[in-house]
Design a binder for these strands. Sequence first.
DNA 1: CCTTGTATCTCGCCT
DNA 2: AGGCGAGGTACAAGG
Lengths: 223, 223
Amino acid sequence: MRLVIARCSVDYAGRLTAHLPSAPRLILVKADGSVSVHADDRAYKPLNWMSPPCTLKEGEENGTAVWTVVNKSGEKLIITMEEVLHDSSHELGVDPGLIKDGVEAHLQELLADRMETLGEGWTLIRREYPTAIGPVDILGRDAEGTTVAIEIKRRGEIDGVEQLTRYLELLNRDPHLAPVKGVFAAQEIKPQARVLATDRGIDCVTLDYDALRGIEDDKLRLF
Amino acid sequence: MRLVIARCSVDYAGRLTAHLPSAPRLILVKADGSVSVHADDRAYKPLNWMSPPCTLKEGEENGTAVWTVVNKSGEKLIITMEEVLHDSSHELGVDPGLIKDGVEAHLQELLADRMETLGEGWTLIRREYPTAIGPVDILGRDAEGTTVAIEIKRRGEIDGVEQLTRYLELLNRDPHLAPVKGVFAAQEIKPQARVLATDRGIDCVTLDYDALRGIEDDKLRLF
DNA sequence: CCTTGTATCTCGCCT
DNA sequence: AGGCGAGGTACAAGG
């Protein structure tokens, strides 16, 4: 990783056109060849950047360093450095990576494994059931054998209800599946989402992540 | 801006729980108090971060530095530094900021100015036409005098079609406007969005930004 | 202070 | 490679 602090101006031409007037900034060159330009605020977002794969060419024009970063699709980032205030390189190696817990994918796994938390006798047909407009999180059956489409969110908002509604409309056109009822499952469901879901005959279920995981742990302990 | 290269492990507890095993990384502390942790790849996204406003407390435990970053809502980022390899600070000042070109707002201006690109005899009623559920990008009339609601996106996806559908439903309740037809205009329209729009009787138009801008330039040249 | 909508969104997964 | 959904989305603008 190379850290450069320099007074620079930056031009980007690619998905849009953007320009940064001259000012002191941090320029970050990473081992994968990516380049980003940071101001002294905002933790997350660089002012400008080029994602890998891309190539960096360090040139010079009238005594000022000019870096040109180009990627596959022809996007271009040009950094003109009027004054370099710091320049250091550091060997970091490959990062072991982030371990996450509590995201939607995990909720889906847990719930698919414990369909009975939704109701006695409920069973799984499959996760990520494919449709023309995208995969349904979980397709299952209730105790009476009625098909159920389940949409899972960490936070249940109106968009999620709209999404499930579209799936239900489509699934109910399939005579092999119809009638299909809907369940909107989330760790937290916003009141507006609950109202809309209820209005459309969709059941709302609040998921207890810790409880689901606890059940899972209990299961593992049996083996 | 403070740059620290250190072998560290990181724990985040907030909207989710995440852990980073010990490895050498860049820790960036910015003037606004924000903190981010970067690995030696990916230009854009830090491995972990805390957005401002937040407070950094530099502590120590058994001779190793432990930084605790907390924000308003109680989210916590804990950085344990086993070995500090570099530590430098730099005064950057306030950044003049990025100047952009070619985003949705610009497309809207251009299209409003050149309604005839949608069809001969099409005219503008107004941009950002206000409704109870938000402003319609462009309200206009076609050659027959039929009211048209136009939703503009840079990239046209399903959400945009849903949005336009809601507007159309509302606008069609107004007897002064009804019937109102819909046009979904974007530089690029995703197939699924196109299918949904077509199914709902909404026309899709692909916008050529450069052509629109070119026309605009031609217009300017006339004055 | 909230909500709403955009983003060079990034990222991962799956077709 | 392209499409699609999720994200600790982040972030700015507007009510």
